[in-house]
């Protein structure tokens, strides 16, 4: 899976590449508009992450070029601008997702994966990790092939974990993933805790292992050991 990261802030681009590489993606970086333009014309990518504000142009231009030559590439916009007009424009010209800076790398990762899944399998495949199988289309979860009934948020939480295996996730990023960024309060962190408790219990009930580890002061990690 090849990903192009178009971002002029070198440190941020590096972080994204670093994070996504660990998840098994092959990443390339373009720091300027022209670099990006050249790369999308020459190579084929599964997903492109585009920053809108570039020193020598608007990210929208790259998206337009991409749509012309490689319509199957998934596009995620990352931008500091969070106006509705930008979001609407981004979606209108064919991007798949819009993330406002600052964002969580884990969230970006989850969205890239979900986008690729949708692009490649039409969301029709199952996500399997050890004894856990998630049937994406029916939003059903099986542990040891026994169905476990999760609430909407618990399902979202599990999917978020499965997209970020063996990665330390902050409580805040989980809360934001589940309720959006407008719900910022100590309460939402409590809610994260209670949802995690329920998810863990439901997996254990079906004979699954406890994969959710809590990391003191930071958050949680979904890992085999």
């Amino acid at each position: 899976m090849k990903i192009l990261v178009v971002e002029d802030e070198k440190g941020l681009a590096e972080s994204i590449v670093d994070y996504l590489s660990k998840e098994g993606f092959t990443c390339e970086v373009a720091n300027t508009f022209w670099q990006a333009d050249e790369k999308v014309s020459l190579y084929q990518y599964d997903c492109t992450i585009v920053d809108l504000t570039l020193p020598d142009g608007e990210g929208f231009g790259i998206i337009e070029t991409l749509k012309k030559i490689a319509a199957t590439t998934g596009i995620i916009i990352i931008s500091a601008r969070n106006t509705l007009e930008d979001k609407i424009k981004g979606l209108e010209i064919g991007s798949d997702d819009y993330m406002t800076k600052p964002f969580h790398l884990s969230e970006l990762n989850a969205r890239v994966k979900s986008l690729i899944r949708r692009r490649n399998f039409g969301g029709n495949n199952d996500m399997i990790w050890r004894e856990i199988r998630v049937q994406l289309q029916g939003r059903k979860v099986f542990v040891n092939e026994k169905e476990t009934f999760l609430s909407r948020k618990e399902y979202d939480l599990l999917l978020y974990f499965l997209s970020n295996i063996d990665v330390a996730l902050t409580k805040e990023s989980i809360a934001e993933h589940l309720w959006g960024d407008h719900m910022d309060s100590a309460d939402s962190l409590d809610m994260v805790y209670s949802h995690i408790k329920n998810l863990r219990r439901k997996i254990l009930e079906r004979g699954g292992k406890d994969y959710i580890q809590s990391i003191y002061g930071i958050g949680y990690k979904f890992a085999a050991s």
Binding site: E9, G11, L12, Y19, A80, R81, T100, K101, H104, G219
Partner: peptide, 21 residues
């Protein structure tokens, strides 16, 4: 101004996320 501030903040966030790994 917002863009200029959000970008370094995004970098801090990203680095922290890498660091906690």
């Amino acid at each position: 101004a917002s863009h200029e501030i959000q970008t370094p903040l995004a970098l801090i966030n990203a680095r922290v996320e890498q660091f906690i790994q």
